[in-house]
Design a protein around this nucleic acid. Sequence first.
RNA 1: GCUCGCUUGGUGUAGCCCGGCCAAUCAUAUCGGCCUUUCGAGCCGAUGACAGGGGUUCAAAUCCCCUAGCGAGCACCA
Length: 473
Amino acid sequence: MPNVEEYEEIRMRVAPNPNGPWHIGHVRMPAVIGEYKQRHHGWMLCRFDDTDPETKRPDLDAYEEILDSIAYLGFDPDEVVRASDRLETYYEHARELIELGGAYTCSCNGETFSGLKNDGEACPHREKDTETTLSEFEAMVDGEYNSGEMVLRIRTDIEHKNPALRDWVAFRMVDTPHPRPEAAGYRCWPMLDFQSGIDDHAFGITHIVRGIDLQDSAKRQAFVYEYFGWEYPEIVHWGHVQIDAYDVAMSTSTIKELIAEGELDGWDDPRAPTIASLRRRGIRGEAIVDAMVELGTSTSNVELAMSSVYAKNRDLIDDEADRLFFVRDGVEKPLIGGPDAAEPPVHPDHENRGTRDIPVGGAILVEPDDVPPNGKRIWLKGYGPVRHTRDALEFTGEGIDIVRNGDVDVVHWVPADESVPVRLRTMDGDLKGHAEPGIAGYNTDDVVQFERIGFARIDRHGAEETVAYFAHP
RNA sequence: GCUCGCUUGGUGUAGCCCGGCCAAUCAUAUCGGCCUUUCGAGCCGAUGACAGGGGUUCAAAUCCCCUAGCGAGCACCA
């Protein structure tokens, strides 16, 4: 953040549009702001920029879902507001701005004005007197126009060399009522650049972070700040984030469509690049925050490697995740000789957590790739060495040296009779298999490590099967 | 078309404002070794980058110019 030493308190805001649950890209803002707040005793506002009841229509559930996502990341905004509660404030500022000669009402249609603007020519409404503008604006506020009939424009510089800054729209009419009952009566809505500009000043925001798509916003808002004699906050623009490892596009509307079409089970489908999905997979918010913070705030577009998130998460959960065996597509083999049970450790780094006692029975399941060729040995982890003879595995009783010498692979296994059917949901689809009986003792939200496969979160124990979500290797 | 911005290894990042300490930092990734009854973790090692070209300077990743590539805005979306 630039010039932090010049402020007593760094005040930042995250300004989501509540038009759906968050995907991974959305959390970059709260992650970075939240992290900064914690490091430098900053202040965080969550302001819902819900000023478009029509094309980016707010989703009433999203307000809470977004706050929930922020909490999941580990942050707590100091204040939460909704722009749709603050219309009167925006109107007041608009009136003041009109008095200052900074705005005028305009009834040009979009195409007409666009043409004039691109030629650097003013429209006839620009020279209206203040009284007319004021009364027309009140008529806008009172809802006397229909959508498209009248807007309030900021008077900037109609010949500005950057056409994007010329006399932009501050308020427009929207016929569709806002979904929030409290705001449903309003028809005259501010545009983002106006609303956001007013609010950033009203809340004493010192540092704004936003995407490069809003590069021109500050330049537009600067005209308003100039009229009011305000000082513009410090600003950081950053590029877009892409996430590798996902087939599904990171776009609220795309995900929404895929869910509607049944391609995805919901917002928490493991294949969806959403916060709900990561959460269900047992990935900690902190891991996401760390990875996001590492991306920095460069203006170029960046790609977040999920492996980076996984590495962070592994650090966080490895120590407490108990070990379990899970065999995918098990091949059943009779087991001849050897002990009746195995006692592998609950966690190899923490002997004091004890052992898992796995009954062996007369046969076990191993993964197809782990079945050794006839006559060759494998070491059943936590149990001992066996040799593949004809169609069975025969206990040989050799010492661990055969593994140390590199001759024998160590593989995981489960008893054929007493194992639990498990469906492991992954980004690449569901895997069926069997886990050792001890899995029944874990509850929803527990994160375990399936040895030689990876970490997973226990989702539920159903009548037919236990469901787990795969986090990462 | 007009305007604004960006470009450091596979990925991300530090450095760039205020040129030398940068034969370029750290992380992740990949590969190899040690350790290990797992995947992981740990320890050790390796791989690998200043978009290209000019200029200024004793000295350029850093300043200037050009080229290329990428991105954004020019909405009564956020």
